[in-house]
Design a protein around this nucleic acid. Structure first.
Lengths: 205, 205
DNA sequence: CAGTGAATCTTGACAGTGTCAAAATGCAGC
DNA sequence: GCTGCATTTTGACACTGTCAAGATTCACTG
């Protein structure tokens, strides 16, 4: 009886939900992203969502998966060689990672923090894209080790975990504003680059 | 009219709330810590808490402050010199930090993640103890720089931010089980130690 | 000891949340 | 044109944090 207009079936609800959810997340943070507010914003009932996502967590997983895809794409073009000194190249890489994190704080917090992983709630597609992103990072670390940018004697897997851990930890600290603010981001990245590549001989390719 | 027994005034409610809240946090995680469950567990009304904490966030801040105190105390005895090689000393330090984090995952997540900081909701006592903890770490870094354990040429503040960031990021990754699991914690810490102290000459004191 | 004020605790209520069951609606195919 | 199915809605439930108003007890003053 209600809604006699031709839009009972929304047609593209899943995509609309994701789009508006991302906007809501960006504007109001993770706490401001409630299903009622989202559905109201999309112009649909509160439970319409359940025919496209099994759960609220499923929606959040999809958002996080998009975030990983963005982050992965962003870090891809970093691989080509340049003739800058190793430390500077790694510094630029760190800067790019931290820039993405600080420019999308809520999304970044969703991708990692927010119980998605802790409670085994991450669905398979999220796991897949997240692990793929890690494998890309691992491959880059191996390349940098062979190029003499990162220490060759370290196990590549451990080194990847540590370097990613460093970037991730710094991102969190800067986002939350606990021990670092974004005004000194440049200096921090430089310190990271020198620490990881510092003593290494510049041996470009 | 109710509760004719002599326990209308609980007498030590604030402390009891904190104790049970910590237990609830440990057992059921951050999402399982609701004020109703907590008050029921303490045996008191749902709003009794509001006479001792202005807010739920205030309670969480108090819990987090306790966590910082524990972490700070734990890392204090690490300062005395030993004659082990630098990398091993730092490895042990990292291991201690990550052990605390992984053994108290929910509390650690509360101390950092959980919007306490992001939304400027941290009250002054929490800020104070957290910053004090950071200053202790900074002082330790300076000592280690002078002892030749950490690179002397780096700015101490930046170096502290980076080293803490590394430990923090690894803690998060291990806790959430994203890219690292706790079985390889030893190896990871070793990698950290060698990375930060690796090329440095062993110059104890 | 009586009595008053403040501190503490309880009950009732409200808006908000995620989610399930059942009914309503529109689309595609026989 | 009718039937089955996917989609959407309405109603309801248990749960959350928090406020206002009343009940109870403690500490202190006269």
């Amino acid at each position: 009886m209600k809604k006699p207009n031709n839009t009972y079936h929304h047609g593209d609800l899943r995509a609309s939900l994701l789009r508006e959810a991302a906007a809501l997340l960006r504007d109001s943070g993770i706490d401001g992203l409630s299903l009622r507010r989202l559905s109201e914003r999309v112009g649909v009932s509160r439970t319409a969502l359940y025919h496209h996502f099994s759960d609220k967590h499923a929606l959040l997983c999809a958002l996080a998966a998009d975030g990983f895809a963005q982050l992965d794409a962003l870090m891809q073009p970093l691989s080509p060689a340049s003739n800058a000194p190793p430390a500077e190249r790694y510094t630029a890489f760190a800067k790019q990672y931290l820039d993405y994190a600080t420019k999308n704080p809520s999304l970044y917090g969703l991708m990692f923090g927010h119980t998605l992983w802790r409670d085994k709630l991450a669905d398979d597609s999220l796991k897949q894209i997240a692990y793929e992103s890690f494998r890309h990072h691992l491959a880059a670390v191996k390349r940098w080790q062979e190029a003499g940018i990162l220490p060759k004697e370290q196990d590549s897997l451990r080194l990847t975990q540590v370097t990613w851990g460093t970037l991730h930890g710094l991102a969190q600290l800067v986002i939350d504003g606990v021990y670092a603010d974004s005004t000194h981001l440049e200096d921090i990245c430089q310190c990271v680059g020198q620490l990881f590549c510092g003593m290494r001989t510049a041996k470009p390719q």
